[in-house]
């Protein structure tokens, strides 16, 4: 009896029909739908620009890399992969590819290890002049790439400051920028100077998230500072190390300013980077956009492959 007379709309304690939860839910749906749309509106300018300024040009470059011709009169290459097979015979391209890998293999590991050591030293709360050291080592980041390249070029000029200094120490002058090996070395030194402090800042940020108890535990277990650093600190910084490794690899594969301003790619093509060669093919002499796009896709693919390898290695559990 009571069951059948039960009102279909339950009454709230105060006697009003309790429609509110359902009603409110319905209302929320439309409001949240509306705010969801507003949300998409917030993303639109940025997403549109990234698409227009990165994804679309990247796709266009792929098309271009299968084309040949000048200016606006581009047609499909014959055979389609002509620009790519040309890379295999282009000695200059291969030289710049090798140069870029030399920079990558020598500079990035040295830089990241130096940055790790510096960050670990600066993370010591009892260190005197901590702020001063940090500011000094971080300072090169404030200098533009063109500016520092020109300063290094002046210091390493044939009769320049570095050679005068070496002479005072009794060494023979070194033709820094005129020798294929030392020209690369000057670029590596420049990169180390400019970017070590930058990476150090990432490690300092990462070190703040490390539980001091783990370091204390290691100390109590009798581990010295070096063992603590290697077996306690470094493993905990692994995500940061992976990030800086990927960023540095990405940056090294795109080097341009240093190659252009510090060594002008020389002597010959001995210190030229891939991006510098790409610029030359694109905008100097008789521009060849199709071939240049093929070069740019080699850079793109290398960036992707190396990032994937690093993420695989970084993900591996040890």
């Amino acid at each position: 009896m009571s069951v059948t007379t039960q009102p279909t709309v339950p009454l709230a304690p105060d006697g009003e029909p309790d429609l509110t939860p359902a009603k409110r839910r319905g209302g929320r749906m439309t409001i949240s739908r509306r705010t969801n749309l507003v949300g998409w509106g917030f993303l639109l300018p940025a997403a549109g620009l990234v698409t227009l300024m990165s994804f679309w040009p990247m796709f266009r470059a792929l098309i271009l890399s299968f084309q040949s011709g000048r200016g606006t009169r581009m047609r499909w290459a014959d055979p389609l992969w002509f620009n790519y097979t040309r890379l295999l015979e282009d000695k200059v391209f291969q030289q710049t590819l090798a140069n870029t890998f030399i920079y990558l293999a020598i500079q990035v590991p040295i830089m990241l290890i130096l940055a790790l050591i510096l960050a670990n030293l600066l993370n010591d709360r009892n260190l005197r002049f901590r702020g001063l050291f940090r500011t000094a080592i971080f300072l090169p980041c404030a200098v533009g790439l063109v500016s520092y390249a020109l300063v290094f070029r002046t210091m390493f000029a044939n009769d320049g400051m570095v050679n005068v200094f070496l002479g005072k120490l009794g060494f023979d002058p070194v033709p820094w920028l005129n020798n294929p090996t030392t020209a690369k070395l000057v670029i590596v030194m420049g990169l180390l100077w400019r970017w070590t402090g930058y990476n150090m800042i990432f490690y300092l940020a990462g070190l703040q998230n490390i539980d001091p108890n783990t370091l204390e535990a290691a100390r109590i277990d009798g581990a010295g500072p070096i063992r603590t650093f290697l077996y306690v600190t470094v493993p905990q910084l692994k995500p940061m190390i992976l990030l800086t490794a990927i960023m540095s690899t990405n940056g090294t594969l795109q080097l341009f300013d240093e190659s252009w301003n510090l060594t002008a790619g020389g002597p010959g093509y001995a210190s030229m980077t891939m991006s510098h060669y790409l610029y030359q093919v694109s905008f100097q002499g008789s521009p060849n956009f199709g071939y240049a796009s093929a070069i740019s896709y080699v850079i793109l693919i290398l960036v992707a492959i190396l990032a994937l390898i690093q993420m695989k290695v970084g993900d591996r559990r040890d």
Partner: peptide
């Protein structure tokens, strides 16, 4: 898009 090198978008 972070991984797209500028070189690959410069010409287009």
């Amino acid at each position: 898009a972070i991984m797209i090198p500028f070189a690959a978008t410069m010409i287009p």
